[in-house]
Design a protein around this nucleic acid. Structure first.
Lengths: 222, 222
DNA sequence: CCAAAAGTGTTATTGATACACCCATGC
DNA sequence: GCATGGGTGTATCAATAACACTTTTGG
C-alpha cells in the first residue's frame, strides 16, 4: 500500500480502443496518426490516459466519443497489456476495449478533433505503434469467436436493417460465404429479431422487410 | 505523457488471483485473510502490487507461487477492474487472473507464508474485501462457460487420471450430473486424451485405465 | 425484358440425448 | 457374496448443411 517501496511499480494507466465498423464489405478499424514521440507519425489505436474519478469504461467511451462523435455503441473490455517494455519510455499498462459502430452512424469519416484519424482494413493493417498490431489481432480474433455464438454482430447495424445486410456483416467478419436460406432460418430461430413492419423499397429490386434487434442478451462472463 | 497534469490519474496497479481447485466434489477458491486496513481481518483474493520489470502474468504467477508453492499451473487473464471507488483509500486498478490447480499438487492445504490462507467453497464464499465477491463471481462464470467448449478442466487434474475423475470435475464445475456413457464417448472423440497404459488398481473395485491430456489447444481470443 | 436482390422447403447428415446391465477387484 | 466403481451400445431426436428456383421492383 505504501508507494515509496523501491520495488513497486507505479505504471501509467491508459485505455486503448479497437473501434470496428463494417463498410464496403470490409471489416475496418479506426486508427490515429501519432503526433508525438514515441512512434511520432505512425498509426496507432486511439487511446488516452485515465482521468481522475473516471471508470475504465468511461475512459473508453470518452475516447470513442472524441474520435467519432458516437456515444452509445457496443463496448466491451478486451484484454490488458502490461509487458514491461511495451512503451519505450515509461512503464504503461493499457486496458483495451473493443467497440462496434454501425457505419451509418458515422456522420464524418474521420474525426472532429484536430488529430488525424482514418479507417483501415482491420485484417491488413499498417505497421502500428507500440504493440498495437498484436492488440488489433487479438481483437479481430475475439470478434470472430463471438460472431459464432453471440448476437454481437448487431452492434454493426443501424436500428432497422434487411436480413441480407445482417448476413453480409457475418460474412465479412467470418471471411466466408453463408447460405442464405440456412442463415435466415437460424437467425430467425434465435428470437433476436422482429420485423419492424416497415419495408425498404429504395433499391432497384424487390423491396425488403426491415427487422430490428429485440434486446441484448445478458452479458456472460467472457 | 506528463504526469504533472492535474486531471490524470496515477492509480496503483495490482494483480489479484482467483485460484481454483476441485476437492471433495467442491469447487474451491483460495482466500487470504487481510492483516491490514482497509478490510483488516476480512477474507480477500490473494494479490499484490506489480513489481518493477515484472509482467502482469509474472506477477500473477508470483502470487500463486507464494501462496501455494505451485508454479506451472494453468493461468489466464480474467478481467480488469478499475472503478474509481473500489478501494476506499487510493485509486487502484487491478488486473485479475484465474488459475487452476490440481488438488493433488497442493502439498500444503494452506500457505508457506505467514499470512493466513484457506480454501473456501467458490459458489458460497464469505463476504470478501473490496469488490472481490464480484470478481469471484465473474471468475466462476468464466470457468463454467469455458468448461462447456474447451479443455480447461484438465488444469484441475494430475498428469494421469481416470475418466471418472475427469467426469466428476465437469460435474462439479457445471453443477449438474452427466451421463457416464455419453461423457466418455464425447471426451474420447475430442482426441484430447490418450491412455497412459498404466492402470489404477488402488481402489476396492475394478481397476481403471489411466489417461493423460495430450496438449493444450492453441489459445483463442477467448 | 433485363438486372438485382428478396424470399422460400426438403432431404441428408451429424451430433446430442436417453437409457441399463455386466465386470473386476477388495474385503 | 457384497460393495464399489469400471466399462460398454443402441435408438431417438435435434441441429446443421447442402441445394435452386420464383418473386418483386426499377430502369
Amino acid at each position: 500500500m505504501n508507494n515509496t517501496y523501491y520495488a513497486y511499480e507505479m505504471p501509467g494507466v491508459t485505455v486503448d480502443l479497437v473501434l470496428f465498423t463494417v463498410n464496403q464489405d470490409q471489416l475496418q478499424v479506426l486508427l490515429t496518426r501519432r503526433a508525438e514521440e514515441p512512434f511520432a507519425g505512425q498509426w496507432a489505436l486511439p487511446g488516452g490516459f485515465l482521468l481522475k474519478g473516471e471508470s475504465l469504461e468511461d475512459a473508453a467511451r470518452r475516447v470513442m466519443h472524441d474520435k467519432t462523435g458516437v456515444v452509445d455503441a457496443y463496448l466491451e473490455q478486451l484484454y490488458t497489456f502490461g509487458e514491461p517494455d511495451r512503451d519505450p519510455r515509461n512503464r504503461i499498462v493499457t486496458i483495451t476495449y473493443f467497440a462496434l459502430i454501425p457505419w451509418q452512424k458515422l456522420s464524418r469519416p474521420g474525426s472532429r478533433k484536430v488529430s488525424e484519424v482514418s479507417w483501415f482494413e482491420a485484417v491488413r493493417p499498417p505497421n502500428l505503434a507500440f504493440d498495437h498490431n498484436r492488440i488489433l489481432g487479438y481483437a479481430v480474433n475475439r470478434l470472430r469467436a463471438k460472431a459464432g455464438y453471440s448476437n454481437i454482430a448487431f452492434g454493426l447495424l443501424p436500428e432497422a436493417f434487411r436480413l441480407t445486410e445482417l448476413q453480409r456483416i457475418y460474412e465479412v467478419i467470418l471471411e466466408q460465404p453463408l447460405d442464405k436460406r440456412n442463415f435466415r432460418k437460424r437467425i430467425l430461430a434465435t428470437g433476436w429479431l422482429t420485423e419492424t413492419g416497415a419495408i425498404d423499397d429504395s433499391g432497384a429490386h424487390r423491396p425488403a422487410r426491415l427487422y430490428r434487434f429485440i434486446k441484448r442478451d445478458v452479458e456472460f462472463s467472457d
